Simulated assay, not measured.
Amino acid sequence: MDTRAIKIWRAGVDAVGGYEATRTALATSDGPAPDQIIAVGKAAGDMARAALDHFGPLPALVVTKDGHAQGLPDEVHVIESSHPVPDARSLSAGRALRTCVQGMAPGTHLLLLVSGGASSLAEDPVEGKTLSDLQALNSRLLSDGLDITAMNIERRKISRIKGGGLLGTFTGQSAQVLAISDVPGDDLSVIGSGIGAPPNPCSFDCETRIIASNTLARNAAADAAKILGLTVLENVESLHDDLPTLARRIGRRLQDMPPGVVVLGGEPTVVLPPNPGRGGRNQALALELAREIEGIEGITVIVGGTDGSDGPTDAAGGVVDGTTWGAGAAEVLKAADSGSFLEQQGALFTTGPTGTNVMDLLIAVRD
């Protein structure tokens, strides 16, 4: 196993950390100091911490995934919620967000910090829709192989706070929205199902900025590879396809790969069987690629979610080489249980929360 692949992956993720990205963005902003900070998403904790370090003590509401709120001051109102399928806490978080925004007085200024994961972490459903409806919708969307844009269109239809709905209740003077993109095209109306999108028409001053993205992560990974003396053979956002198709296409590329590094980003889609096992799309793609490079020496591939999690697991993905594939692997792939196999092989990649979320990152190194 070539540990340089992991170093390159981590360099890419570190470059788009929520704290640094937010700190840098605020240092170059000339807008007014906010009266209220709201942060929502998997990177919300680190983004809010950077804003508080920049402005000093301010009222702050943070909605994030379980275990992602470390290091925040005690006075910050933190709601830890469920991902990737919402639970009762998600509804409490959605109501808290709407109440906070609605309660801001005329003439006030809002700083809204948005990152991926908000679609599940906070929701305030339209009249007639319940938590069971939300859970059923999210479970279906996650298993049907839809891309994130299509998924979030469906989510917005039953939400009062997505697609511009949250800021549609704002009656203050200005809002600044800083977002970390986990979607293709870095479209604010898709990130978190548009929880940070301005309403149309908009009755207040609204500045929106994308402050971190998959492109920035890939470029940083490519730079790290060059520092290690490796040739960057490819650096593209091309992981947007169904998982088996991607595995075959990337597998052919790896089999003919000369010495160097391939850097790929994006977010594969996957169709899940009934009662899927342990694993996510990154673990599944890593194991599919292990099959493609079986028996080939000198290739290491790491596939990981840049937020440090993969589906409903606490692993980011997998690290595989030509020796990883073995007996039983095909069966666990069919059962969507790749995480169990990778753990047995010592090929599970676990990072813990990274403080960011810019889709997935694949690094392949051939010696």
Rank of each mutant, 00 (worst) to 15 (best):
P57G: 07
L216K: 07
I296L: 13
V63L: 04
S132F: 13
K226I: 12
I293H: 05
R160H: 10
R4G: 05
S29I: 07
V262E: 08
G326Y: 14
K129G: 02
L61K: 02
A25W: 07
A43L: 07
D310W: 10
I211H: 01
A217Y: 03
P184A: 09
L361M: 09
T28G: 12
G308E: 03
A69D: 05
D186L: 01
G280C: 05
F55E: 03
L239M: 12
G265E: 03
A290M: 10
A175T: 05
L111C: 06
E127R: 12
L121Y: 10
G251H: 05
D144T: 10
L110P: 00
G304I: 02
W9M: 09
A197V: 02
M104E: 00
N275I: 06
L333I: 11
T28K: 14
R291Y: 13
S340K: 13
S193I: 01
Y19K: 08
G168L: 06
N275Q: 13
L91G: 02
A247K: 02
S81W: 07
F55Q: 04
V16M: 08
G317M: 04
A221T: 02
R156P: 00
T300L: 05
A33R: 15
P86T: 07
G196E: 01
T149K: 09
S189I: 03
S181F: 06
A175N: 05
E343C: 04
T354H: 04
G71P: 00
A122R: 02
T24D: 15
G12R: 03
A290E: 06
S181C: 10
A44R: 03
I299V: 14
S120G: 15
A220V: 06
V190W: 04
V76R: 09
V301L: 09
L97W: 07
H109S: 06
N357S: 15
I180S: 00
S238M: 11
L361R: 01
R23E: 10
N235C: 12
A48G: 08
I191F: 08
R89G: 02
G265T: 06
G165K: 03
S309Y: 15
S29W: 15
Q255T: 13
G308V: 01
D307M: 10
G185A: 01
R4Q: 11
G298N: 11
V101D: 02
